[in-house]
């Protein structure tokens, strides 16, 4: 019974913060989508056509088709990392909004959950536009229903990326240091998770390194879905399990550390 009340309060308190993000989004959505999407489109274009001219086929498909799922999956890495590092710092420390919110019945886990949910929802339009463009204009998504199924997977993945980024944020006290998260976490992940080339051909150390990166597990699900390759049940369970564990574990850790940090 108490857990029911707790859950009810939990979601009752998330709503106003989501509404707050909704108000913000209403004024910035166009610029936001451009910001979130433009560099992904540039990578798609530059490598899809640039490298595509030199690399004719990859893993048995046109290079552009190979590239689309990886680019789509990497959208969330950068959007979520920015939002959960610099964005969270700005709202909690620079604007001092967290102390203002904590002076009401709202508690920290609810604030952090609202942050994660909003940022994840924010990636949806960008990914949809990318899919529509790649699928209908470039003809580089062979499986329509696969793309539909890929959306919930990408949402879970983005929750996980956000939760991980939060774990960095709770240990960072100077905003200057957020650049490290981008340089030492997001960028290497983008380059070593098989976005650009088939990992099965990579040297063994590189292959095992890539398996430790969450983005690899997103791409290993999303690429077969979009291109219509075979996907085993074991693969699905493993990859979803990894993402779910990272999301829940990262969120729990961030809540615990952030609470300690704010209360000191």
């Amino acid at each position: 019974m108490t857990s029911v009340i707790y859950l009810r309060d939990f979601f009752a308190n998330i709503r106003p913060i989501l509404l707050r993000f909704g108000y913000e989004y209403r004024t910035v959505w166009k610029a936001q989508i451009v910001r979130d999407l433009i560099d992904r489109l540039l990578y798609l274009f530059a490598f899809g056509f640039g490298m595509g001219a030199l690399v004719t086929s990859m893993d048995g498909m046109p290079y552009l088709t190979f590239l689309v799922p990886g680019i789509a999956a990497s959208t969330g890495v950068f959007v979520m990392t920015m939002a959960m590092t610099y964005g969270v710092w700005e709202r909690s420390t620079s604007y001092k909004l967290y102390p203002a919110w904590l002076a009401t019945p709202v508690r920290l886990p609810q604030i952090l959950m609202a942050e994660l949910l909003y940022a994840t929802l924010r990636t949806l339009p960008s990914i949809l536009i990318l899919f529509l463009l790649a699928g209908f204009v470039l003809g580089a998504i062979p499986s329509f229903w696969g793309a539909v199924l890929a959306l919930p997977v990408l949402m879970l993945a983005n929750l996980a990326f956000g939760a991980i980024a939060m774990c960095f944020t709770v240990h960072i006290y100077r905003p200057l240091h957020f650049a490290y998260v981008n340089t030492l976490w997001a960028t290497p992940m983008f380059l070593f998770s098989g976005v650009f080339f088939d990992l099965s051909q990579a040297p063994a150390p590189l292959y095992w390194f890539s398996q430790a990166l969450p983005l690899t597990h997103v791409i290993s699900l999303v690429r077969p879905l979009l291109t219509g390759q075979e996907l085993t049940a074991l693969q699905v369970v493993t990859d979803l399990g990894v993402l779910l564990t990272l999301f829940i574990g990262g969120y729990a850790y961030a809540c615990w550390r952030f609470q300690k940090r704010l209360l000191d």
């Binding site: 308190n13 604007y95 001092k96 102390p99 203002a100 919110w101 019945p105």
Partner: peptide
């Protein structure tokens, strides 16, 4: 609070609206 920690991303009335809902 000592320093104004208003929400710079919102309008004046939205600030009050959101804060009220938080209660």
């Amino acid at each position: 609070p000592q320093d104004d920690n208003l929400d710079p991303d919102l309008t004046v009335s939205e600030n009050l609206m959101v804060y009220g809902m938080l209660f």
